[in-house]
C-alpha cells in the first residue's frame, strides 16, 4: 500500500502553514519528518490521518490504511494495560494483543492500571497500540518522547519489524532511529503569504 502525496497544502487554525509538499511512502520504507518547531509537522500528520481536510493537493492511498499516534496516547488510567490494548484491538477488529505486549516488554505490567504507569511505560503502551491496529501505514508524532535509551531501541526494533512485514511509517522525530528510510525536511515548504491586495487572501 503506497501513500502518495501530491502538491499538498495544509492549514492550522485557518492559516496556511505548509505548501507544495509531494512525496511517496512505499511499503517497507520509512520517512523521517524533520523541521523546526511549529512548522506544521503535527498538522501534516493529522491531515494525512484524515482528521482535517487539506487546503490543496491530493492524498492517495486509502485513509483506512493509516494508524495514527498523536502526542497523547488515548489511555484510560482506570483500565489495565491489557484492557486498554484489548479495547483498541477490538475496535480495529484484530484479535491478539500478545505480540504487542512482547514487542514493548509490557508482559509484567499487563495487569497494572494504566494510571499507575510511569510516563515512559505509558508511552510504550501507547506505541504498542500501533501493533494491534493491524494497519500497514504508521503515522507517529514524536514517538520517543519520555522513552529511555533502551525503550527507544525497542521502538526502533518494532518499526523495523513492521517495515520488514511490508508496512511503512512516517515518523516526526529528531532522534536518529537507524531506520531504513529517507529524511523529509519540510522547512523549505513553509507557506508563503498570499499577496496583500488580494482581499480574500488576506481574509483567510
Amino acid at each position: 500500500m503506497t501513500l502518495t502525496v501530491t502538491d499538498l497544502a495544509i492549514t492550522r487554525g485557518g492559516v496556511p502553514v505548509l505548501e507544495g509538499l509531494s512525496f511517496e511512502l512505499r511499503p517497507g520504507r520509512a520517512i523521517i519528518l524533520r523541521g523546526p518547531n511549529g512548522i506544521g509537522k503535527t498538522t501534516l500528520l493529522r491531515t494525512l490521518a484524515g482528521l482535517q481536510p487539506p487546503l490543496e493537493g491530493h492524498i492517495d492511498g486509502a485513509e483506512d490504511q493509516i494508524a495514527y499516534a498523536s502526542h497523547s496516547d488515548g489511555l484510560k488510567p482506570t483500565l489495565t494495560v491489557t484492557e486498554n490494548l484489548t479495547f483498541w484491538a477490538s475496535v480495529f477488529g484484530t484479535s491478539s494483543i500478545q505480540p504487542a505486549l512482547n514487542a514493548f516488554a509490557l508482559n509484567e505490567l499487563a495487569d497494572r492500571h494504566a494510571g499507575n504507569l510511569s510516563a515512559g511505560q505509558k508511552r510504550r503502551l501507547g506505541l504498542a497500540r500501533m501493533l494491534v491496529t493491524g494497519r500497514p501505514i504508521w503515522m507517529l508524532d514524536e514517538p520517543t518522547v519520555s522513552l529511555d535509551r533502551h525503550a527507544v531501541q525497542m521502538f526502533a526494533d518494532a518499526v523495523r519489524a513492521h517495515l520488514g512485514q511490508g508496512g511503512s511509517a512516517l515518523i516526526a522525530t529528531h532522534i536518529d532511529l537507524g531506520l531504513d528510510g529517507e529524511v523529509l525536511d519540510v522547512g523549505s515548504n513553509k507557506a508563503k503569504p498570499k499577496p496583500i491586495d488580494d482581499f480574500d487572501g488576506g481574509f483567510l
Binding site: 484524515g50 498523536s70 497523547s72 488515548g74 489511555l75 475496535v91 480495529f92
Partner: peptide, 16 residues
C-alpha cells in the same frame, strides 16, 4: 475525557 487523553482522535481514525 476522551478529548483530553486523545482517545477521540484515535477513535476518529478507527474503522468505526
Amino acid at each position: 475525557l476522551d478529548w483530553e487523553d486523545g482517545s477521540l482522535d484515535l477513535l476518529a481514525t478507527a474503522p468505526l
